[in-house]
Design a protein around this nucleic acid. Structure first.
Length: 280
DNA sequence: AGACGATGCGGAC
DNA sequence: TCCGCCTCGTCTT
């Protein structure tokens, strides 16, 4: 389920319940009881891109990636779980609560959260407090200019936090065809795309609702949550054209777009008239 | 009731 | 380039 906004919401929910608390028990699917964590104090809980990092006072940090199906549950200590313990990847217990992660795709123990952060080779987190587009631009310039913008947006090494839903929605909002080569998009346009990504992700973190939307709590036309994602064959909410879909990139991820609003028209990609990115 | 595809990613080939 | 993940919500029958 998670894109970057979901992970930041998760971190925001876990942080007040874990930071400053002592771990009374811990267990992971891979290693069994984590006795080394007993008595450890949690010093930070943070989301970085789509990863969750939990750091401890004396030593070490846990990194958890939810993949597509991972989920965290919070239970009163000793209370019943809503899922089978067989499905648990990791649990952490404090004096009052047990936090269980089911179906994680990755659980890793490391000496520090900063070393984990480095090892991930992630581009800047679009939801980090500090935002500097020039750091993203530097990574874009090292990218093959023939790569499609749809693939580039999903590349967490360039900027982290965008997932498959936001990818299609961002390209619709920017009027950009998903297969537009990176090299045909000027710097001003790229800055606008990533700036919009940050804004939408931030708004979805702040919103109370659980479900992803690019329209906010009130919804869009007809109460819609999304412009094009998962709307293949339906009328474009802006112009009525039938929404298209096709697989894109190495991972063959589904991409959705409006063939009219996002026509292939490379020469019109510059909103500003600035120079295109030079080839790397 | 059953089929299908998924908001992600690593690894086998 | 494809598959596994072995779950779960949604759509079809």
């Amino acid at each position: 389920m998670p894109e970057g906004d979901t992970l930041h919401r998760l971190a925001n929910a876990l942080r007040p319940a874990l930071v400053g608390e002592a771990i009374t028990g811990a267990w992971s699917h891979a290693w069994g009881p984590l006795d080394a964590l007993k008595g450890e104090e949690v010093t930070s809980v943070e989301a970085v891109g789509k990863h969750l990092l939990i750091a401890f006072a004396r030593e070490g940090a846990l990194r958890v990636h939810l993949g597509m199906r991972g989920v965290w549950h919070a239970y009163h200590r000793g209370g019943p779980w809503k899922r089978s313990p067989e499905a648990a990847s990791l649990w952490l217990e404090t004096a009052r609560f047990t936090f269980v992660c089911f179906h994680a795709s990755q659980v890793e123990w490391s000496t520090s959260s900063s070393s984990q952060r480095r090892a991930l080779h992630l581009g800047p987190d679009l939801l980090a407090a500090e935002y500097d587009f020039s750091l993203i631009l530097a990574r874009l310039r090292r990218c093959d200019p023939k790569r499609s913008i749809g693939e580039v947006l999903l590349d967490q090494r360039i900027a982290s936090g965008i997932g498959n839903v936001y990818k299609s929605e961002l390209l619709f909002l920017e009027g950009l065809h998903p297969w537009t080569p990176l090299g045909r998009i000027d710097e001003t346009k790229l800055k606008a795309i990533y700036g919009l990504a940050r804004k939408l992700l931030q708004r979805n973190v702040a919103m109370g609702g659980r479900r992803r939307t690019v329209f906010g709590a009130l919804g869009g036309p007809g109460g819609a949550r999304l412009w094009v994602y998962n709307r293949v064959g339906k009328a474009c909410l802006r112009c009525g054209t039938s929404v298209a879909t096709r697989r894109q990139g190495d991972q063959a991820r589904s991409t959705f777009w409006c063939p009219s609003c996002q026509a292939e028209a490379p020469e019109t990609l510059s909103a500003s008239g600035a120079n295109p990115l030079p080839s790397s």
